[in-house]
Design a protein around this nucleic acid. Structure first.
Length: 213
DNA sequence: TAGGCCATCTGGTCCT
DNA sequence: AGGACCAGATGGCCTA
């Protein structure tokens, strides 16, 4: 019974924090290399900004920079440097956020917007875990489930099942649970949550990460 | 080729 | 005055 309890919780949370269709791209393999190259490009540019001015001057976006002179030009260049630094800090913060989110099976890097939406749902899912733990008095088991969610293997080992995407609203968790229960035939009074939501179709035709359409 | 994502530049606005 | 923040514009790279 406890095993079932944990499984139900696990699938419930997995479903919840991966279920926002908006946040996921629809095409397999989409943009991965693109982002890698973007990162590379960024690092080259960053290096150039500090030590390779001539390199930067060859880039169209930096042409005006090289033409600037006088106090106004210097101010603008300083402002550009600050802005660049600010954006780098923002990206570092996003990377830090990505690093604490559950890893995805295909090791794809989340885009910025995906990262924020994923984090939003993940936090909500963890909050729900604690809420349910309070309700059912199985705090230790729920916390273990929450901890397991950080393991990619645990996500990819889930069993099959498929749901259409519900536009997930964290403020409306009751309706989500109701919807999930109706899809699986789970009793609303059972205090158990659906087991069959699943993610093997991570690489299928639907969404590559969630298996959701 | 279109569309998505990204880095960068830029000018405006607000705050200290 | 100068810094932080923001949004629009621009151009590069990648995939379908």
């Amino acid at each position: 019974q406890m095993c079932s309890f944990k499984n139900n919780t696990f699938f419930y949370i997995s479903y919840v924090f991966l279920s926002n269709t908006d946040m996921m791209r629809s095409q397999p393999g989409d943009m991965r290399t693109s982002r890698d190259s973007a990162t590379l490009r960024g690092s080259v540019t960053k290096a150039g900004a500090t030590s390779e001015e001539t390199f930067l001057c060859k880039l169209p976006a930096h042409r005006t920079r090289c033409e600037r002179s006088g106090q106004r030009g210097r101010r603008r260049m300083k402002a550009n440097d600050r802005e660049r630094h600010r954006m780098h800090n923002l990206n570092s913060a996003l990377d830090a956020l990505r690093s604490i989110l559950p890893a995805l099976p295909d090791d794809a890097k989340l885009t910025k917007i995906e990262t924020l939406r994923f984090a939003h749902n993940y936090i909500w899912a963890l909050t729900e875990t604690l809420r349910m733990a309070d309700q059912h008095g199985h705090a230790a088991d729920y916390l273990q489930v929450a901890s397991d969610l950080r393991s990619p293997a645990s996500v990819s080992s889930a069993e099959s099942g498929y749901v259409t995407s519900a536009d997930f609203d964290p403020r409306n968790s009751d309706s989500l649970v109701h919807e999930m229960n109706s899809k699986t035939g789970a009793s609303a009074e059972s205090n158990t949550l659906p087991v069959s939501f699943y993610f093997t179709s991570l690489c299928g035709d639907k969404d590559r990460r969630t298996g959701l359409s």
